[in-house]
């Protein structure tokens, strides 16, 4: 083997170059492969936030699972929220593998959630006071999620890309489930129609925020440059937001609903939607767990975690 140095003897720079070459060539990085530290940390942050958002995302819908107005809707929303928990589980497994070399576990993820170090998506801090919100979450929040997740289907990190493939397939069903609820309401009584319009008005700003700020100047930090550099995603936040408008504005209008932004219009020359920016200071505040329902939902999760401590202890002694 003279003349060939083994991989263990490569310098960090050589490993980095090789890594970049691999992702440039469209190869997938796997859990046990060498990866730059900031790639690993970016992925851990992204995927644990995504995973925990799926889990916290069950809570706004949780209210409507027992309350769904027919057996068919009860079964539909039960299946939907179960899927979301399943996505959370799948993603946390991916994050756990990335965290292993750092000596961290799922317990750390949960503790980081409770302490506020680990954030969850802005939309899941919001109130969902009516059945209209239950429909809207399935239709537009999941619709927005499909857009951001599709953007990462070819992510350079193989385990994440594979998890997203399965998640996106299920999210399509969720969006259909949400759309079916919304259509029934939009075609229903005056009270039902008002329920949907209220929900659209209530969620509009949160939906714009969902894609994140246009660039770092808005909120001080943005991971989008790093994730694009490492081929975890392709489009920018603003491009995704525009895709969302293009897909959903016509659908909202076709149901006879309006969006609560009079300035909203498609500018033919720029080939862009023009819209009123959400209040990004409010966004920053919401994801610091100061949203309308942040404390209550974290409290519920923390209480359940504490109440079940004896069960986890029992499982540990049994194993």
């Amino acid at each position: 083997m003279s003349g060939v140095i083994s991989y263990q003897e490569w310098t960090e720079e050589q490993k980095y170059e090789q890594f970049i070459k691999r992702i440039e060539a469209g190869e997938k990085i796997e859990a046990d492969d060498w990866m730059p530290e900031d790639y690993r940390l970016t992925l851990i942050k992204l995927i644990s936030m995504h995973g925990i958002s799926e889990i916290m995302g069950a809570l706004p819908e949780k209210e409507w699972v027992p309350k769904a107005p027919s057996l068919k809707r009860k079964l539909g929303i039960m299946a939907k929220v179960q899927d979301e928990m399943g996505h959370g589980q799948l993603l946390l497994r991916v994050a756990e593998d990335l965290m292993k070399p750092l000596g961290k576990t799922r317990e750390d993820i949960m503790q980081d959630l409770f302490s506020g170090r680990l954030k969850f998506h802005n939309v899941f801090h919001m109130e969902a006071p009516t059945w209209g919100d239950a429909g809207l979450i399935g239709w537009l929040v999941d619709g927005a999620a499909i857009i951001t997740q599709t953007n990462m289907l070819n992510a350079s990190y193989g385990p994440y890309a594979r998890a997203l493939k399965r998640i996106c397939a299920e999210e399509v069903f969720h969006a259909q489930h949400g759309e079916a609820i919304i259509m029934a309401l939009a075609e229903g009584t005056d009270e039902q129609r008002a329920m949907v319009q209220d929900a659209v008005n209530r969620w509009w700003e949160a939906l714009l925020m969902f894609f994140g700020p246009g660039d770092a100047t808005t909120t001080g930090t943005s991971k989008q440059d790093t994730t694009i550099k490492y081929k975890i995603r392709t489009k920018t936040n603003e491009e995704l937001r525009q895709d969302f408008f293009t897909k959903y504005i016509p659908r909202v209008l076709s149901l006879g609903l309006t969006v609560p932004d009079e300035t909203m219009q498609f500018d033919q020359q720029q080939n862009l939607w023009v819209y009123k920016q959400p209040d990004w200071n409010k966004f920053k505040d919401i994801i610091k767990n100061n949203g309308p329902k942040s404390k209550e939902r974290l409290g519920l999760r923390q209480t359940a975690y504490d109440t079940n401590e004896w069960v986890r202890d029992a499982l540990n002694t049994a194993n």
């Binding site: 039960m78 359940a304 986890r312």
Partner: peptide, 25 residues
């Protein structure tokens, strides 16, 4: 369905909600 999101761990949450869904069916 009231237990949703509150089971002892995430794997159980998925399993229990699947059972509740079958039962509702």
């Amino acid at each position: 369905s009231e237990w949703l999101g509150l089971a002892p761990h995430i794997e159980e949450d998925v399993a229990f909600s699947s059972i509740s869904q079958d039962t509702m069916g």
